[in-house]
Design a protein around this nucleic acid. Structure first.
Lengths: 218, 218
DNA sequence: GTCTATATTAGGATAGAC
DNA sequence: GTCTATCCTAATATAGAC
């Protein structure tokens, strides 16, 4: 498995690939530079030579994938909005969800590993990495909040942000699960679930029914 | 903050409290026994004396909180089903979501820390901890799947499991966010969102609309 | 740009006095 | 049950030869 690297791939890239897999499996702190360089068939000193430190290596891994993921999402969104400036809600959600899954359909599940890595990044709060990710994500989340707003006229903006967080949570945790066979189906289910959830909150503007049941059962 | 412990609390409990906070903030591997025992105002050797090892300390922390959380959920569910064997969907979801939030309303946000910790546990796959948690959760998830099934006659069972995973993801990631002011509102929003999402999938049995938009935009 | 060897630091765990 | 002192291991990072 670790030998999926071509000989022609540069040492730098082999290190990125090997580190990504090991970090996803074991976490950042459990994974040592020795493991990484061994898996990448590079010398122990190579990480510091190419990246300066272990921390910078981690950031480089995230930059590489997040740039690609978010670019793919925005590209899809652009395409949808070009057809119709008020896009279908399901289409917008699909533009957000699908690119995350496209990773998962690569040859050796390299994308699923990255989703595990994303989950780790969520868990690792307060690091410089976390802040960098937030900034990278903020841009994308704003665009999608706008698009959903357009597809659901009358939706409350604050609430929408919460709901997008729900969707990110559902997506991230689900995709990080190991035994995912039919990611395509699950993605479609998630899109439907999210669309119905968003539409449902148009009917109940104030979360009253939940509060009613809350008091009734306590 | 670290001095919220009473002098009368046992060394064992002070260690549990201190470790929980540090683990939530920094993660398991970054947190050292030296930090823990210093914060707990205990001796370095105390962790090994009381728990045997760092790993066993971690497991003890999770046992303590998860037992309480899941017991509270099931208690609520029991209460609902006693009133009416076919419970209201929102009430069932609320029984799952609310206890997680009750933590967050403690004096010094000790519960929010635990939600961060839960997130870390999700991210740390393959450990013995993870497996122990899965087993602990499986029992609860089955009960809730049954209850939702009863509230939503005709729902597909496999799909329901996926959807419950969506809800767990949304709940966990949302609750682990730091800047949560109105957890009560957000919980109500999540319950509504989830209820609408679940009901919406009754209308679209086969995820066709998502697939249609998927092909239309690619 | 790749290697070996090593400096430096710090962790978990334990032995044994009190 | 609590303390000090210490063992053992392993990590990151770097220096300097090739």
């Amino acid at each position: 498995m670790n030998r999926a690297f071509q000989l022609s791939v540069s040492t730098r890239d082999r290190i990125l690939d090997a580190a990504e897999g090991l970090f996803a499996d074991q976490g950042f702190h459990l994974t040592t530079l020795r493991q990484i360089t061994q898996a990448a068939e590079a010398n122990l000193a190579a990480v510091n030579y190419y990246f300066g430190s272990k921390q910078e290596l981690i950031r480089a891994i995230f930059r590489r994938r997040l740039d690609a993921l978010n670019a793919a999402r925005l590209e899809r969104l652009d395409a949808i909005e070009e057809d119709d400036s008020r896009a279908d809600l399901e289409a917008v959600l699909d533009a957000f969800v699908e690119p995350a899954l496209e990773f998962t359909r690569g040859g050796d599940a390299e994308g699923q590993r990255f989703m595990q890595l994303l989950l780790r990044a969520f868990a690792d709060r307060d690091t410089a990495l976390h802040e960098a990710m937030r900034q990278e994500y903020a841009h994308v989340m704003r665009r999608f909040a706008d698009a959903v707003s357009a597809a659901l006229p009358g939706a409350d903006r604050t609430r929408l942000r919460h709901q997008l967080d729900f969707i990110v949570g559902a997506l991230t945790l689900t995709m990080a699960e190991s035994a995912l066979k039919d990611t395509r189906i699950i993605a479609a289910e998630l899109v439907q679930f999210a669309a119905a959830g968003l539409r449902g909150s148009l009917d109940h503007r104030i979360p009253e029914s939940a509060r009613r049941t809350l008091e009734a059962t306590s």
